[in-house]
């Protein structure tokens, strides 16, 4: 009751307030309120529409994955399969040798990302806090690393690993081809990562280190004991992005690996592999709609781990960029 009363009186007060205003002021307020309400509707429509565009391929993947053989040739099946089976999924998992490939990819991926984040952080710190001769020119190289497409250096790089250090040591098809560049902050998109870390460390207050120096800590120990603990969330964000980039890379891995399989490279060869397994012939022609089923199933299982990671660690992707210091 009392609630109702106060509300009423508030309404009355508002009405009084409205009456005290001039006609123009009133119409202005009313127009604004209407505009705000319209905008809420518009926003909902826009966001839902665009959200649909983003979800469309994912829904399509799921729909394709569970189609039975008969559904593939049935044009009336658009979204929901009539005879849902798991056979496509099972065949695709087998053809990709999914669990082994996954293990391989994760080993390569997580390891490289971890090493690369550390090496890039160290380099970025060096660029952020120390002044030395040639720093500008050296940082120019970092920018160059961001700009130069991998395709330019890929062939000479291949020979670099094929005859490692000018000797007959062949590193092609070993994980060293990925780990060595990652260790020395030269892996996939490491230029960008060095830049991010440099910006981040520049944004931290200098007092942090000065205090450590006065306490008798050397620069390396300061970095390990003072800067790294402060940078942990930024580390995590860059690490997650790095995992995504390594996961999605197929150009570089297909160049170095023929025996070692990663998710991305097997996905690219999935079609032939499946044709061999299912029809015993890599040149057989099957219809587009049939192809799509297996292809989409392959897509689904290759991004599934990323999607799971994203659902749980979404916060670090979306909020991390602000903390990473790229924006200051």
């Amino acid at each position: 009751m009392t609630d109702n009363k106060t509300e009423l009186s508030e309404k009355q007060r508002r009405r009084q307030h409205m009456q005290s205003l001039t006609k123009e002021e009133r119409s202005y307020l009313r127009r604004r309120e209407l505009g705000d309400k319209l905008w809420v509707v518009c926003r909902a429509v826009i966001l839902c529409g665009l959200g649909f565009i983003i979800f469309y391929p994912l829904i399509y993947m799921i729909s394709c994955t569970f189609r039975g053989r008969a559904d593939m040739n049935d044009p009336t099946v658009v979204w929901i399969p009539r005879r849902p089976t798991l056979s496509v999924l099972r065949e695709t998992i087998e053809a990709m040798d999914f669990w082994n490939t996954l293990l391989n990819t994760v080993l390569l991926n997580v390891g490289c990302s971890l090493v690369q984040v550390l090496s890039c952080a160290v380099t970025g710190y060096g660029f952020a806090r120390f002044s030395f001769r040639g720093k500008k020119q050296l940082f120019g190289i970092v920018i160059l690393m961001i700009l130069v497409p991998m395709q330019i250096i890929s062939v000479p790089l291949y020979f670099q690993f094929r005859f490692f250090l000018g000797t007959d040591v062949n590193l092609i098809d070993t994980m060293w081809t990925m780990y060595l560049p990652a260790m020395t902050a030269n892996g996939i998109r490491s230029g960008l990562m060095i830049l991010i870390f440099r910006q981040f460390f520049r944004g931290l207050p200098r007092e942090l280190e000065d205090a450590a120096y006065i306490d008798g800590c050397g620069p390396f120990m300061t970095f390990v004991r003072v800067m790294i603990p402060n940078a942990l969330s930024s580390f995590l964000t860059v690490f997650l992005f790095s995992i995504v980039w390594y996961w999605n890379d197929y150009y570089i891995s297909s160049m170095y690996f023929s025996e070692t399989k990663t998710i991305a490279t097997t996905l690219c060869n999935l079609e032939n592999e499946l044709k061999l397994r299912l029809f015993g012939d890599a040149t057989v022609k099957i219809s587009r709609r049939e192809q799509a089923a297996w292809r989409q199933a392959g897509c689904l299982i290759s991004i599934a781990p990323l999607l799971i990671m994203y659902t749980f660690l979404q916060k670090y992707f979306t909020e991390g960029i602000e903390r990473s210091g790229l924006v200051t």
């Binding site: 710190y125 060096g126 690393m145 020395t184």
Partner: peptide, 12 residues
């Protein structure tokens, strides 16, 4: 400073 960027420089 050179120490911090040394590894990268070598690799690059």
């Amino acid at each position: 400073g050179y120490g911090f960027i040394g590894l990268w420089l070598l690799g690059t």
